[in-house]
Amino acid sequence: MKLEQSFTVSAPVQTVWEALIDIERVAPCLPGAEVTEAVGDGTYKGTFTVKLGPTTAAYAGTLKMDDLDGAAHVATMHARGTDKRGQGGANATIVSRVTEDAEGGGTRVDVDTDFTITGKLARFGRGGMIQDVANRMLKEFAANLEEEVQVGAPAGPGAEDAAHPQAGPGERRAPAKPVSAFRLMLGALLDRIRRLFRRP
């Protein structure tokens, strides 16, 4: 299955690019995702947790930075995860392109994802729901990324952002909260309804 998505961030191209290729920094921007270990050679171990009604599905896997083109601002990553209970998994190749947004200013990020998915999460693939849910997740990711790059922007000498304290050396971020599949599906259904009413 393939997905083509895009979003914009109100920040310079280089700032967004540097955030996107910093896996440990950008992973918490994706709801339910957490990096647990950097194993070297551009590979990271992590988890993705999704709440499905009264149960929670946890996936463990790896994310490898396969190729980085700093001049063109194109990053190619491969992600692989399996359900910790052995009930399915997912594989994905993700290509991200960062360019200047000519229309609204800021930065445009185009994301092409080629993936396969099995198990509980595969139910989202019915009726195109996986694309709607992915779009909802990308909106949340984009909003979190924009907040992250704004927080990480250089401040004046001695300035600190007490409202968004960063993890210091040796410190770990708070564990990722599970992303609610029900909330994502509800949001995706509302998006579909809005599109129906917008049709002439």
Rank of each mutant, 00 (worst) to 15 (best):
K84E: 15
D67W: 07
A174P: 06
P178S: 05
E100Y: 07
E18I: 03
F48L: 06
A38G: 13
E4R: 06
I193P: 02
P175Q: 08
P154G: 03
I193N: 09
I193E: 14
A181C: 08
N144D: 04
D161N: 15
F124L: 15
A162T: 04
G104I: 05
T118D: 03
P54E: 15
A176E: 02
A155L: 15
L189T: 14
K139G: 10
F141N: 02
S10Y: 09
L3P: 02
R198I: 09
L68G: 12
A142R: 04
V39N: 09
L189K: 15
S96K: 09
K2Y: 04
N144I: 03
A33T: 06
E4H: 06
D69T: 14
R173S: 05
G106L: 04
Y44R: 01
P12A: 10
V111P: 03
A153L: 13
P12M: 08
A33E: 00
M77A: 10
L52T: 06
L68T: 10
T93W: 04
T8G: 14
T15G: 04
G70D: 15
A60W: 06
R183V: 04
A155G: 15
G88I: 00
A90N: 00
V179F: 04
I21D: 05
R173Y: 01
S10I: 10
G152K: 13
A181F: 10
R136F: 03
S6M: 11
E34V: 02
V109G: 03
A79T: 04
